[in-house]
Every structure is written in C-alpha cells, then in structure tokens.
C-alpha cells in the first residue's frame, strides 16, 4: 500500500495517528475583504512538529455544545520552531460562523495531525499542482516541500473571482509569479475559465511527471481524467462528512478500487486511479 519509504523527509504516504492536543488561539484574521475566508493560528506544538503536507486537524469548536461534531481543517502553514499551525477556512455553515467569534487566547482542542498526506511520486521532478478555491490550503505545504526538494513546481490557482484569490500572494512569494497560473470563473483575474481548462493547456506545453489536486469534487474528477489521459500519476484530496476523525465510525468512506476506504485515516489523499468517481 505504502510504496514510498517511511522516512519523514521522503514525503512518503503516511498515516500518522492523531493526538488529542489542547491548543490556544494566537491570531485570527480575514483573508478577503468580505471576511468570508478566515485564518486561524493556533499554538499546537505536537501538530506543528509532526504534520506532513496534506494532513488535517479535527477541531472542536468551543461553546458550541448543541453542535456535537468536530470539524476537519486542512493544515496550511506549520511552524515547528514556534509550535504553531495555521488554518484557513471559508465561512460556510454554523460551525465556521461560530469560529469567527474565536478570540485570541481562547483554548480549544484538536485531534491531529490526522490522515495520509501527499506522497506525490517521490521520484517526480516536475510537478503540477491544481488548486480550486479552498483546495489551495493542503497544496501549499506540498508546494513548500517540493520546492525544498529542488523540484520544479507550477500551481494552477483557481477561484470564483479575483477577490477570492486569497492564496495567490503566498504561492507567488514561494514559487515566483511565473509559476502560478491564475484562473477565475468570471474572468476577473487571470485566465477566464476553470482550472481544468488551464491545466489542460499546460499539459500540452510542458511535460509533468506528477500531478496533485484539491478543490471541488467535480474539479478533482476532471483533473483525474486529464491526468489519466496524459498518463501522469495524480493524487487527489477528498472531503467527506466526518464524525470521529480517527478511523472508527466509518462515516467518511470513499469508494475505491480496493473497496471502501476511510477519508480520515486512509486519506484524505488518494491516488486518483484508485478512486471510483461518482456523480
């Protein structure tokens, strides 16, 4: 199952079991002008030190007792020296709405880091990342790691409109603007169209030997199809409604060629070819 070797540095596919870790809110803020996308920095030394690109934390929102379940959030930036993790999330439902009222200094707890992150063909030299909307979150630490390994990386960064391109600056700082092709659904910035269309163009022009993607389910399915046609190994990061976050409850299963797998601990990253894509 785990083709890559086990050492942390090798970006191997790992299924680290999470830890229940008390943590503290260090910083909060908005990423876009409407406050619809927020950042949350937590002091969580264990998660910060042990997190691998593509893993997530399962967060219990304080003072929210009539909503029972934890919420999974992909890890954006981790600072192991400072013992901090950064989450970026979109305010979509009651839970993320409640999280906007978190205050600096507030205590909460997470289970993390959870899940099997990116393995992304360790032998690959030229990698294409395709991020749709909030799907950029788990791809950022992958981009960091690939860059540190001296690999060529391009990131197709897509959003509904220019205002929601909140990750553009970070990716450009990391990889240079020339490596971050932008696209928006409404054409308000960059290429007018979907990430899959932009990615298809790039695949014609350059030769990539690995693809990783995260974003809306339909987009990931489209990328998986592109990758298959181009014969390039591809990984996807899937989202399913989740309860326990430790592999016990079987809520978040994904249909694969090897039967049902749990998104929380067998994923969230899967090889695109093993996923049975449904509508």
């Amino acid at each position: 199952m785990c083709e890559a070797v086990g050492a942390r540095e090798s970006l191997s596919c790992q299924a680290a079991s999470g830890v229940l870790e008390p943590c503290e809110v260090l910083d909060i803020g908005s990423c876009d002008k409407n406050g619809g996308i927020r950042r949350l920095v937590l002091r969580a030394p264990h998660a910060a030190i042990h997190a691998l690109p593509g893993q997530f934390v399962h967060l219990r929102i304080p003072h929210f007792d009539d909503h029972l379940l934890r919420r999974p959030f992909g890890l954006y930036r981790c600072n192991s020296a400072a013992g901090t993790i950064e989450l970026v999330y979109q305010v979509l439902g009651a839970g993320t709405q409640q999280m906007t009222s978190l205050k600096v200094g507030q205590k909460l707890d997470i289970i993390g880091p959870v899940g099997r992150g990116w393995s992304c063909a360790p032998e690959a030299k030229n990698v294409l990342l395709i991020a749709g909307g909030m799907g950029a979150v788990p791809l950022y630490p992958l981009a960091e790691q690939l860059k540190a390994q001296g690999k060529q990386v391009q990131v197709v960064l897509g959003a509904q409109n220019a205002d929601l391109l909140v990750f553009q600056k970070d990716f450009e700082t990391l990889l240079g603007a020339e490596n971050i092709p932008i696209c928006t659904d409404d054409g308000s910035a960059g290429f007018h169209g979907f990430t899959t269309e932009r990615a298809a163009e790039l695949l014609k022009k350059s030769s990539f030997d690995a693809i990783a993607t995260c974003g809306p389910h339909l987009m990931q399915r489209g990328v998986a199809l592109l990758a298959r046609k181009a014969g390039i190994p591809c990984e996807v990061s899937l989202e399913e409604r989740m309860a326990c976050g430790i592999g016990a409850c079987l809520s978040c299963v994904v249909e694969t060629t090897a039967g049902k797998k749990r998104a929380c601990v067998d994923g969230p990253v899967f090889k695109a070819d093993e996923v049975i894509w449904n509508d």
Partner: peptide, 23 residues
C-alpha cells in the same frame, strides 16, 4: 457488508443522523 453510500452522516440540533448501514 459494504454499508450505504455517502453522505452517511449529518449534524442536527444537539444530535446527529447516521446511515452507515453496518459496514
């Protein structure tokens, strides 16, 4: 047993619904 299709759970006021299907 393979259980049911996803979504298998939904949070509801002070509770949750599940339809795992005894996978």
């Amino acid at each position: 047993w393979t259980g049911n299709a996803t979504p298998r759970i939904a949070e509801t006021p002070s509770g949750m619904l599940n339809a795992i299907g005894l996978q």
